[in-house]
Design a binder for these strands. Sequence first.
DNA 1: TCTGGGGTCCTAGGACCC
DNA 2: TCTGGGGTCCTAGGACCC
Length: 422
Amino acid sequence: MRHLFALVDCNSFYASCEQVFDPRLKGRPVVVLSNNDGCVIARSAEAKAVGIRMGQPFFEQQELILRHGVQVFSANFTLYGDMSNRVMEVLRQFSPHMEIYSIDEAFLDLRGFRGNLEEYGRRIKSTVYRWTGIPVSIGIGPTKTLAKIANRISKHHLDTKGVFDITDHPEIDRLLEAVAVGDVWGIGRRFVKFLNSRGVTNARQLRDLPDKFVKQQMTVVGLRTVTELRGQPCLRLEDLAAFKKNLLSSRSFGRPLTERSEMEQAVAEYAALSAEKLRRQRSLASAVSVFIETDSFRQGPQYGNFATAGLAVPTAYTPEIIRAAEAALAKIWLPGYIYKKAGVLLSQVIPESDFQLDVFAYDGGIRIKRSLMKAMDAVNQRWGRNTVYYAAQGVQRPWGMRQKRLSKRFTTRWEEIPTVKA
DNA sequence: TCTGGGGTCCTAGGACCC
DNA sequence: TCTGGGGTCCTAGGACCC
């Protein structure tokens, strides 16, 4: 049977989440900032219209923001994660097979669907909006890459009303010619530069390039993209959530660090965060790496380094991960620098089930460690992150994130649930 | 002038995504 | 004053083996 994909993408997702819980924000320019209130990472349509740029530092756009009365929010990932789950639950009702591609996007498998696809898409769109308050756009096509393009078209052309099907479109060439080559999924900055230098500027030209040339210059990855543009699927729907082979927790500090004791706390904090992610996907790690770096935007001596410490036995036990992280940090720590960022990477990750214990041998206390972690995760799940934590993570945390404009956790904390006054 | 022919595994780095 | 965070896949090249 012929393949058919729908890509459902939430419009200005983070900004839309903020708008759901404060109706006064509807129709007004809204932006959401990255951690530490650094860059703009989401903009409502109105914010785009007044010229706020994506990924640009907040302070550079402050004048524009003031002039247009743009509402500004610190990133509230607890809220966005929960809203994402709600949207995905609604989508699940419209197709037996679905791939959650990112926090705000999902592919639906529509193979074998009979009837008017765009009409079906509009039903999906209005149901998601009514049940969650989040507006979405939907692109439909015979390959994921074409569904992505159809999605772009649905966003840019008002007459599509947010849903566009590109399958067997009579004017496919004209449509693809209107898509810049850099807007094709899988074509990044480097290849745009290369392709432009060869006179290839739009998706239609890319589609019509000879296989041999594409493979030579852009590897099999590029060839897949081109083949998909021709309507021949190379990428399947990935039903199951991908098992992560690396888990990274890293963060810039709210203010720079110079003391080793503070760096140790920050690294312990990120190690604990990574260990939590590890347990969430029921896995164990055998290697812990740490990196630290100074602020490249500032003048002054720069330093950055990376080191790994192995674990004798694969584990997800926070104290063991913290200990390994501190061993790795010891290898690279140099005093005298002003540090801005650090991170902890867990690798050689395996499913918990691959590591079976010998029933008769001493288990190294693993059962107790497991129950302890389970209890800790449950408490933190119920009462909020870091309700219980290790002393190594520090109590004061002067280096913690700046989040001056955080909205409430409307959907995950009873104390912060919105109330309606009569 | 000559310096085999494979194969596997690992790592670093590049490119991309949201 | 102020510049995000977290992933994946592929390739090339080196080490090592027979």
